[in-house]
Design a protein around this nucleic acid. Structure first.
Lengths: 225, 225
DNA sequence: ACAAACCTGTTGTTTTTACAACGAAAGGCA
DNA sequence: TGCCTTTCGTTGTAAAAACAACAGGTTTGT
């Protein structure tokens, strides 16, 4: 099983956080994951199916897509090396997939069975509990990020979306001066608004003395300094 | 510990799904949760804190709120009996709260320590594993719902938000004819749009022959019937 | 059966946003 | 340094959404 863990993507995955190499080997033996290869364009899972395992993408890229009643396709997200694929569906209870996954490039995935993970094995390797804990952490953190994004996106006006996001960033960094990890296009995509309109709004906010910025560096201002 | 599980809210909670009464008693003994009471207006936790336990609301109502850099308060969500409070933060890794929770009414909460839940106890009661599995399921399902909501909300135009939502409902029900669980105001809030504008858009969609509806009953139409 | 409260659709007006097009600044690279 | 590419800000216009106000329908409670 050395061949599995001797892979930086796995070693550095949040799923194996705090698990040492020799521990992970026993663990992987116990989980006996399989590696799957998908050629570019090949489906990894289809909308409507139910799945009992999820994937850790080792290499390549996966498009998660959704097709609506009229057949329009939407790209929901991309999943790359180190990211999990389908973990929410496979961990949920008897929930059919509402999305499909397609290999956007030749892709290699390590497939892990949820029941195997959740049932501490008979020979109960010690680090199994840590793995479960890691899975809970991953789900919880994703949860938290999604909720945060929703609070920004559910602001009615673009100005409020921006201030909600920037305020959050400021709070994270513990200062009214901070850098953001997005360029303008990425931020616009994140907030689901038009880039140029957003640039204009930022400019207005600066003119009104609510904040200042240079490129990715922002400073939030208040009346009282 | 009978006093805990002899409470419909707990008994029916997804956290205790598939766990029978006598099993739950042992479990609760092992978890030794405490009950906390909060008077209306009292803070349950504050933004910035880190928490290592989450709550199951037994009675009352909790406002989850967020205060931005300029001191504007936003209501993020309400948490009522049977719902979990703070589970994402307490299960995440060392993540400070980005929201606060305030009792909107006199509220009773059962407080559960995450580490206690995650570490299968020394006398390893059998149903502990089921509890952990339930927690994973809860997190995963919430995850799934949040992702779904984001896919609707991230549509640029209101028409697309509506069609995204309705298409999803149709798919869930496995038919192009279905009822939705929201009234107009609730749907507008869910999609974060104005109700009357949304009503107008629905009307337009009907005129254009894309769908029909009477009240909460919708039918999606296609060119080819 | 009636009143009151609530929900829904409609319309006109105002505000906000998207869209398109472009020039300037910044960053990479030969 | 100079060229090329990417990113960013700006502007005018078109489209979309919010907003406000109201009327008809439905539901609820008495």
């Amino acid at each position: 099983m050395k061949k599995y863990f001797d892979h930086n993507i796995i070693r550095e995955s949040p799923l194996f956080r705090e698990i040492k190499e020799h521990e992970a080997e026993a663990l992987l033996k116990c989980l006996s994951p399989r590696r799957s290869h998908y050629k570019k364009g090949e489906y990894i899972f289809h909308m409507g199916e139910k799945i009992s395992s999820f994937g850790l993408v080792l290499s390549g890229l996966v498009h998660v897509i959704k097709e609506d009643y009229w057949g329009n396709r939407a790209l929901i997200t991309d999943v790359g090396p180190g990211d999990l694929l389908g973990e929410a569906f496979s961990c949920a209870d008897n929930t059919a997939l509402t999305v499909s996954a397609v290999a956007a490039e030749n892709t290699e995935i390590m497939v892990l069975d949820v029941d195997r993970i959740m049932s501490t094995c008979s020979n109960s390797c010690n680090f199994h509990n840590r793995l479960i804990r890691n899975l809970v952490t991953i789900l919880a953190e994703k949860n938290f990020h999604l909720t945060t994004k929703i609070t920004h996106m559910s602001q009615r006006r673009m100005r409020e979306k921006l201030l909600s996001y920037l305020s959050e960033q400021s709070s994270n960094k513990g200062s009214n001066r901070f850098d953001i990890p997005f360029n303008r296009q990425e931020l616009a995509d994140y907030l689901s608004v038009d880039r140029s309109a957003m640039s204009a709004e930022l400019s207005r906010l600066q003119n009104e003395g609510i904040l200042t910025y240079q490129r990715n560096h922002f400073t939030l201002l208040r009346e009282d300094n």
